[in-house]
Write a protein that binds this DNA or RNA. Structure first.
Lengths: 145, 145
DNA sequence: CCAATTTAGTTCGTGGGCGAACCGATGTCA
DNA sequence: TGACATCGGTTCGCCCACGAACTAAATTGG
């Protein structure tokens, strides 16, 4: 967050923090060990894959720098959620894939996403939700130029 | 950010990151040294004060844990933006206040806030902005319960 | 009045995130 | 083919943030 403590930027920063806190609580409540909100995007990406993918593909998908992804993947591996292995064709490349234990996170993952969304929106109507998301899209675009 | 990579939570996380990036760029462009987005809330609070305040007051205002604030204040002090001094009445208490150099940040601070807001909102109309802020208020509240 | 508790602040260890430097391996191209 | 650039990935140093443990100084209450 930052300069704009009172304004919309501060609001957005606080919402993000609370959303993360909620995710952490949910993970804890479900007894999921070693997973933190930061692992979400990597997990989400890998859950969508049927086959092993190069780490590079993860980097491009998650919007984190490669040094960050290296560490995230190491952590997930340490906890047994994924495994790494070198490519035969290109010795620079390392593939990753979820283990069975990693795959099993899918259910929690989806349920937590659902819980988060409904807590976040509360009783907001469908039309308001759509308008809100569209406005946020616009804002994201405004900040990307 | 988290589980909900595709959904609204991911959107919000990305907006926050982009807002922070914009602030960093602005600070750099203005040649402000040693200040980062994380210092914003502390600075904002201190700029509002006429007299020295106990660190405790800073902690309560910025929504960060006291160990975090200790470090932030140390950094701002190291760069000469504020000074610390012990209380006479209560030896446990340390006061902080901005130095002249710190006070001089006010202008940049306000201008960057303004720049951020207009970049963020873009050409969104006043009524939409208000509705958006109200919805975000609602969301923040939903997540706080 | 003094022991127990609370309070303000710091320190330490852990983890996310970044950029820069680095390492091998592969590509390029003269 | 051999020097150079590029590429995938890791390591390192730094900053933010947290909680737990710690210190010194009040405050409380028996």
């Amino acid at each position: 967050m930052a300069v704009d403590t009172g304004g919309i930027a501060g609001q957005i920063a606080r919402i993000r923090e609370k959303a993360n806190a909620l995710i952490e609580e949910e993970l804890k409540a479900r007894g999921v060990k070693g997973i933190l909100p930061a692992h979400g995007p990597v997990l989400a990406f890998l859950l969508r894959q049927k086959d092993p993918v190069p780490i590079k593909a993860v980097v491009e998908s998650v919007g984190r720098v490669k040094s960050t992804v290296t560490v995230t993947i190491a952590t997930l591996q340490k906890h047994g959620y994924l495994r790494k292995f070198p490519s035969d064709e290109d010795a620079r490349v390392t593939y990753v894939e979820l283990t069975a234990k990693g795959r099993r996170l899918q259910k929690d993952f989806e349920e937590i996403s659902q819980t988060l969304r409904s807590r976040l929106y509360g009783d907001m109507g469908e039309r308001d939700r759509e308008r809100l998301v569209r406005q946020l899209d616009k804002i994201e675009e405004n900040l990307s130029e």
